[in-house]
Lab assay of single mutants.
Amino acid sequence: MSIQHFRVALIPFFAAFCLPVFAHPETLVKVKDAEDQLGARVGYIELDLNSGKILESFRPEERFPMMSTFKVLLCGAVLSRVDAGQEQLGRRIHYSQNDLVEYSPVTEKHLTDGMTVRELCSAAITMSDNTAANLLLTTIGGPKELTAFLHNMGDHVTRLDRWEPELNEAIPNDERDTTMPAAMATTLRKLLTGELLTLASRQQLIDWMEADKVAGPLLRSALPAGWFIADKSGAGERGSRGIIAALGPDGKPSRIVVIYTTGSQATMDERNRQIAEIGASLIKHW
């Protein structure tokens, strides 16, 4: 067993022997301040990774656009098919120029040779490549099948209805392509620590998230040296922004954090800054 596999296998073990965790309302004060600064709703939840206990939450059962955070769930569904012998990570998928959609920095470079399922998941999570996500959605049967996968996990809230990039439209009061912070946090925890996926697939999923290259201005910008984070960000229309993450000190994750916002007129930089400040408060009061 590799060191990384050992780390993920012992996530519940280490967490069980940690000192009790206590909620700190100071972080919620910052979440509410972010709402004021952005002029928009902000949803927040913080779960203990081992027990699933909610440590703090704000608007945990209000719907927010998922945006690209759905790509972690998508690759979880792909990995479940791999575990069941219905898919192979090494299978190569070929596609054409007509398949390319807006923001496809990886797939646009491989029109000639195609990409493997493993490479597509890596591109979808680490670079948020939209064509990679659409190609992977095709392998599982489309958005409705991802929703069905989530329902089978016990998540009857999260739903995907459309493809990239239309799913980022974020129309107010439109339930399409949305989740709730509580539902997303619980589902992410199941994917990373539950028995739904094999140990190898859980490790692969967290490795992809740990290698995320496009979430630097968010929670990662607030992390002290030595902290662990595996995350996936999302951005959408109407001032929408979000991030889902597993993080913790001492090089291992111990909490799940989900943050979503929508309806702001603020710039992307300002949305990023507010999420980073929430992260800084979380870490300060850990």
Rank of each mutant, 00 (worst) to 15 (best):
Y44I: 13
E56S: 08
D83N: 09
L199K: 00
S233A: 05
L219E: 14
T179P: 11
L120T: 06
K213A: 05
G226P: 06
A84C: 07
R91I: 02
A245E: 14
E102H: 07
T116M: 10
A170N: 05
D231M: 15
E35G: 03
T147Y: 12
H151W: 01
M268N: 13
G239T: 09
Q88Y: 14
G236Y: 12
K190E: 13
D207R: 04
L199E: 08
G242V: 04
E145N: 00
T126L: 11
E46L: 08
D161C: 01
N272Y: 12
G248S: 04
V78P: 10
I275F: 04
E195Q: 07
T131K: 02
A280Y: 01
L191A: 04
Q203F: 14
S281H: 15
L188F: 01
L137Y: 05
E164F: 15
A183E: 06
A266V: 15
K190Q: 02
N98I: 09
E26R: 03
I256V: 15
S281G: 08
D161K: 00
S57L: 12
R273N: 14
F70M: 04
H151D: 10
N98A: 07
G114S: 12
L219D: 13
W286T: 08
G279M: 08
K109P: 11
A182P: 10
V117N: 04
P105I: 09
R176I: 05
A148F: 14
R189K: 04
A182Q: 10
E102Q: 07
P249D: 08
I259Q: 04
E166V: 02
W163I: 14
M67L: 08
A148I: 13
P25K: 05
D174L: 05
M153K: 14
A276K: 13
E35W: 04
G226E: 14
A245K: 12
G43Y: 12
L199N: 09
T198G: 09
I283D: 15
N173Q: 03
M115T: 00
D36C: 13
L49F: 15
T116A: 14
L146R: 02
G279H: 12
V42H: 00
K144L: 08
W208R: 06
E169T: 02
A132L: 13
S201A: 14
L47K: 02
T107P: 01
R176S: 04
E26I: 01
A124Q: 01
A235W: 14
L120I: 06
F58Y: 08
Q265Y: 15
D155C: 10
P224L: 03
S128G: 04
R220F: 05
E166C: 02
E175P: 01
V117E: 09
L74T: 09
A182G: 11
E26H: 01
E166D: 12
E195N: 11
D48N: 07
A133I: 00
A123L: 00
L282V: 08
Y95Q: 15
P172M: 11
H285V: 03
D36F: 10
G263V: 07
H110I: 00
L223H: 10
L111E: 00
Q203N: 12
L79N: 07
R255G: 05
S221R: 04
I206V: 14
G226R: 10
V42Q: 00
R273A: 10
E87K: 13
M127V: 04
W227L: 04
A40V: 06
P60C: 03
K252Y: 02
F64I: 13
I125Y: 15
E195I: 15
D155H: 14
Q204L: 10
A34D: 14
E164S: 15
H156D: 05
V117M: 07
N152Y: 06
E277Y: 15
A123D: 04
E61H: 03
L136N: 13
M209G: 10
L218M: 12
T198Q: 03
R91P: 07
R176F: 05
A280L: 01
R118Y: 15
L28P: 09
G216F: 15
Q97C: 02
R238E: 07
I275E: 12
G226N: 07
H285N: 12
T107R: 01
V257M: 01
D250K: 00
M268I: 10
A200H: 07
A124V: 09
Y44R: 12
D177L: 09
T261D: 11
E62I: 15
H94G: 13
S281R: 08
Q204M: 12
M268P: 06
F149Q: 14
V258D: 04
E164P: 10
E61V: 10
T158W: 09
E108G: 06
M153N: 05
R162C: 01
T178N: 01
L146Q: 06
G90W: 14
S68W: 05
A182C: 12
V106E: 03
R238N: 02
N134C: 04
E26V: 09
G114D: 04
A148M: 15
V257D: 00
V258H: 08
E62C: 15
I171E: 07
V101F: 03
K53R: 02
I244W: 11
S264A: 08
G248R: 03
V214D: 06
I256K: 14
R271P: 07
V31Q: 02
E108L: 04
A276I: 07
Q204G: 08
F228N: 00
M209S: 11
M115K: 01
K213F: 02
E61C: 09
D207A: 02
V214C: 03
H24Q: 10
N130T: 01
P253E: 12
T131C: 08
F64C: 13
E237Y: 12
I275L: 14
G242F: 12
V258M: 15
L167D: 05
L137R: 04
K30P: 15
A222D: 15
E175N: 02
E164Q: 10
E108N: 02
Q203K: 13
N152C: 11
R59T: 04
A222G: 13
E175H: 00
L191H: 03
R159T: 08
G141L: 09
D269R: 06
H156L: 03
T186W: 01
M67T: 10
T267G: 09
P172L: 07
I259T: 07
